[in-house]
Design a protein around this nucleic acid. Structure first.
Lengths: 222, 222
DNA sequence: ACACCCATGTAAGGTGTTACATGATTAG
DNA sequence: CTAATCATGTAACACCTTACATGGGTGT
């Protein structure tokens, strides 16, 4: 049903898994917390929500039947339609999380996957990180080859663009290496005062807390 | 006349301006020399070429009437339809190059613009570089604000993703600063003898967009 | 003979945006 | 009261991909 393979669907399910929300806020979250890498418009969000409802993965709830104090205090601002993940929706999202296809390491897909690593089991995290890394290494190979072939035919700007692109990829590989190392050692290396080279980024995180959290009844954030 | 605003059209015109080519090779160039940041498939290239021909910006030429030695030696392999830029096409491309709209500093647009800086006048180059920079600085502002607002609500992975994203943007800003400095001082960007520290130096650009899969639309897909 | 790169195309579909239309609520 | 922001939607279309269809050339 609905080959919405997309990132949007995934991100929506993931955000709603954390807590129910209405469309407007969902969109803001997509574009700030999550949306460092991508912005979505209402024109895609609302139709997507409808599809998800039609699939039984979400249910619409009235934001509130009457504008009483409780609703105001909980939501800050009154909501019109609040979307909540159903049991099927949760299950579906779990499947998406576990699914490690070669799609998962493409640029935008990867970022979306990473954003929900907090709800992903460690072995899947490792597969995704390593998949991403080898994807990037392939890319580097091609870039290097192509650069070697065409070096002198290119003008300075094109060359600079390529160089810069390659460096960006190399940098991401280093980042992934650190993340993978972190995961492997289960360490929480908290970048406090380690290396201070050009790249500056000492990745690292985790804190591990038992793979996947299982608490749906999280009282609405904020 | 075809609101093909796109990057594809721009890149095709730019590449053909340098020398005539047939579609197949054009596509390879888009995906290697130029295509560090983006891959196009035949499914978009050929229709685009037709549109450009219809607009009078390109003409189709027979690759060669007879398979003589000259054609083989020049192109390596025999071409079927060679596209060549017309005078109108050249003029149109010139206009596109000169046009400094706010589109020009969006991720993919910017990369395409940059790739043809060799054919762009210095003042336009400056405007594009500075436009891009302020675009990124806006972005940084938003990211910082959003981060400050939501810091403690986010799990480690989301935080790490944001941090990494911000660093990438900061890097690109530094890169732009150097480029702008270069332009301002009339220097060529030839970085050969300049900064040569640990990680190379400047860097960090469009990492979050533009996928470039290895080889989509491979006609011989098993 | 077979496989595999070169080379050109088309039809259908996916995935998202822009621009528009509408109205409720809150702050000055 | 008015403007801004919150909130929900829809229709049209931009732009690109996938999968298919077709055939020539070249090496083993």
């Amino acid at each position: 049903m609905s080959r919405r393979s997309g990132i949007l669907e995934f991100a929506v399910l993931g955000l709603l898994r954390e807590s129910p929300m209405h469309g407007y806020e969902l969109r803001k979250r997509l574009n700030t917390s999550l949306g460092v890498f991508r912005a979505f418009s209402y024109g895609s969000l609302y139709p997507c929500l409808k599809t998800l409802v039609a699939n039984g993965w979400l249910i619409e709830e009235p934001g509130n039947a009457l504008e009483d104090a409780r609703a105001a205090s909980l939501a800050g601002r009154r909501a019109k339609i609040v979307y909540r993940l159903t049991a099927e929706g949760k299950e579906h999202f779990e499947e998406l999380l576990a699914h490690t296809g070669p799609d998962a390491w493409e640029d935008e897909h990867f970022a979306a996957r990473f954003a929900f690593f907090g709800q992903t089991s460690r072995d899947v995290r490792m597969r995704v990180l390593e998949g991403r890394r080898s994807r990037l290494e392939e890319r580097l190979e091609k870039m290097r080859a192509s650069l070697a072939r065409t070096r002198e035919r290119l003008d300075d700007y094109t060359l600079e663009l390529q160089r810069h692109g390659m460096e960006s990829v190399e940098r991401e590989v280093r980042w992934l290496n650190e993340l993978i190392e972190s995961e492997r050692s289960g360490r929480d290396l908290r970048r406090d005062a380690t290396s201070q080279d050009t790249s500056g980024d000492t990745g690292g995180m985790s804190r591990d807390r038992g793979s996947s959290r299982t608490d749906p009844s999280d009282p609405t954030a904020k």
